[in-house]
Write a protein that binds this DNA or RNA. Sequence first.
RNA 1: GGUCUUGUGGCCGAGGGGCUAGGCAGCGGUCUGCAAAACCGUGUACAGCGGUUCGAAUCCGCUCGAGACCUCCA
Length: 489
Amino acid sequence: MSSELQIFNTLSRTKEGFKPLNHPFVGMYVCGPTVYGHAHLGHARPAITFDIVFRYLKHLGYKVRYVRNITDVGHLENDADAGEDKIAKKARLEHLEPMEVAQYFTNTYHKNMEDLNVLPPSIEPLASGHIIEQIETIQKILDAGLAYISNGSVYFDVKKYDARTHQYGCLSGRVLEDLLSTTRELAGQEEKHNTADFALWKKASPEHIMRWKSPWSEGFPGWHVECTAMSAKYLGEEFDIHGGGMDLLFPHHESEIAQSTGVSGHGPCRYWMHNNMITINGQKMGKSLGNFITLNEFFNGEHTSLEKAFTSMTIRFFILQAHYRSTLDFSNEALLAAEKGFARLMEAYKTLQTLTPSASSSCEASSLKGKCYDALNDDFNTPIVISYLFEATRIINATKDGKETLTVADIDLLKELFNTFVLDILGLVPNTSSDNTHILDKIMEILLSIRQQAKENKDYATSDKIRNTLSEIGISIKDSKEGSTWTLS
RNA sequence: GGUCUUGUGGCCGAGGGGCUAGGCAGCGGUCUGCAAAACCGUGUACAGCGGUUCGAAUCCGCUCGAGACCUCCA
């Protein structure tokens, strides 16, 4: 490859060459889901974005430790139940143990991720399993004089922190004075010195069921400490990449920087990466807006705004067709287009295995590999990679039709291109129907030979009946000079 | 109101001072019993108005539109 990996760092708002702190090791932390609901399309974006980062860094030979947390405690709700944990609320409504709810949605999240071919992270720590570490982190911030205790709760003193020229707002581009004047007044804020201060520890109200003992009160950790405590525990006080959705930029990641700096004197990582949002009718798909479609609904088609079910690979391909820092607008039409495009790509992969080599190549296939590396090195530009893969697709199809020729070496090069980029790095795999594939293969072989016989006898009623009936159950037949092939849609 | 981002052909989306992005859809053809697929050909696209420049979709300014964050959110 001719270029080096460049990563867009939110902190500097520029692309920077990637240099790991301890070559060849790379530490990466990504904010995972809060497990109080089914994962929706929005959740698939960071998962797939950082799956690509994870896969590509490993492909480049780095030894990556990828930590992605599960938030099963600590997020406050902004409604009548203020102060009550989201997970606890759901549990009370359904008469379940909070941990039962968390476990249930963790399980479905894992299933969804597996379907999307998202590799599991190296470590997936639970917030509830790291209360002690969070208490220790809070204590260190108190010792540094950057937090105060108020009525059993502990708050981060943003003004004091900022006064030490640490610049609260360096990541999100905010100015503390503006924050102090624009932060909305909410109920239960009288414990804070300033509205911009954020909770490190919250004293639990009597009805709050998720609670732990601490030096300050029986309660639960605040919104942002878990990531600071767990990333430091598994990746050290400074690591390479911290990722998450753009909506977490402020206040979550800004506060993480403040907490880390309070503990160690510097921010937690070298590179901050943020994926953009998936929109629906131009608006962010999110829980609070109620305009989200869960991944399960995509897979089974049971949602009013979906015309049909879509496979997990269509979703993955759809997401990879846009750059991770751009918004991506969902619509049936866009997804249908992704579905067809993906099918064409996978069809070419299949065709590639059956190509007959020639003595010379009539087209230029050898430069594609380098171009794909260049695209990935340019801040993981997957849409550009895909455009080159379609160029390869055109060459493959034309060669099959006898309009272009390829040498054995070039065919091998294209096979390597597909194996490396499509399968390994982009993580796109052919849709598989079941474990009975080989049986299906045999049955189809028989059906196609009967149909061929019928065609030769000009018994088109029979041949069409076979084709149409198969089409109804999702198997499409393609006829060519060499015979008929079939695909599962 | 503050901070940040953004406006590309019917749709989704790259790119980003002079070089065809790509996919889907459409149209015309080749092939085919028919269809599908595949292949070939096919598009006055860069919100508007000014400015800088030999040259702007790309840089700058203004106008208009959209979004994100400021409150849990991927």
